[in-house]
Design a protein around this nucleic acid. Structure first.
Length: 211
DNA sequence: ACAAGGATCCTCT
DNA sequence: GAGGATCCTTGTT
């Protein structure tokens, strides 16, 4: 089992709300390498997607405020968790200013600690299949929609902490948004750590550099 | 109150 | 590569 040497000290600083209170398209690549911590389980973020404000036709907030997407309009650093296809809990990190509906979907992670707990929550699976997909991340952290609105930047049951930034990043179009307008379908708003195997659908990803 | 469909995953061929 | 699982959210009546 290959786990990269990316372990961070257990008291690594939590990511600040101000870091997250920026455009989702800027925050998304900057989240790669950071850590999600729930009890003994520590996951390093390897793949994300940005859902930005205000003109993204793939964004859950495109139709305005609803009970489900309410956390997306709140302060940056809260979680937005929703149920997809009736069974998968999808974890997002809320970004942008309060009153703006935007977030970053966590699509993939690599295990840093708590591997046995993760495997138990994932039917004993192993390898990248354990964590390369947003529903798999939700399952590994044992999340459900009651976590929606949870503050990730406070000491609590689920925290976002500083980690080791990736050396290189790849990007490509977002997954599963065929309903969106062509411009938004094409937009390269999916980011991943270059070379990581803990990433879903790697074929459409190509080298990316910040602008 | 109802019908439709979804930012997916797994199994099987 | 195809299809089923599974249920909540949403928009419409």
């Amino acid at each position: 089992m290959d786990i990269a040497d990316v372990s961070a000290p257990p008291d690594a600083a939590r990511v600040s709300a101000s870091f997250l209170a920026r455009d989702a398209r800027v925050v998304a690549p900057a989240l790669l390498g950071k850590l999600l911590v729930r009890d003994e389980v520590v996951l390093r973020i390897t793949e994300v997607e940005a859902y930005w404000w205000p003109d993204d036709t793939a964004n859950h907030c495109r139709m305005g405020r609803t009970a489900r997407n309410a956390p997306m309009w709140g302060p940056a650093g809260n979680a937005y968790v929703y149920l997809c296809y009736g069974l998968h809990a999808m974890l997002n990190v809320v970004t942008d200013a309060e009153g703006e509906g935007a977030a970053v979907l966590i699509r993939g992670c690599e295990p840093v600690a708590g591997l046995e707990t993760v495997r138990a929550r994932r039917r004993g699976l192993d390898g990248p299949a354990l964590l390369n997909g947003p529903g798999k991340v939700g399952a590994a952290l044992a999340l459900d929609s009651t976590w929606s609105g949870h503050a990730l930047f406070e000491r609590s049951g689920l925290e976002l902490r500083e980690g080791v930034a990736p050396r290189a990043i790849v990007a490509g179009p977002r997954v599963g948004i065929d309903f969106a307008k062509p411009r938004d379908r094409r937009a390269r708003l999916r980011f991943a750590i270059a070379g990581s195997r803990w990433v879903s659908q790697r074929a459409t990803l190509t080298p990316w550099r910040a602008h």
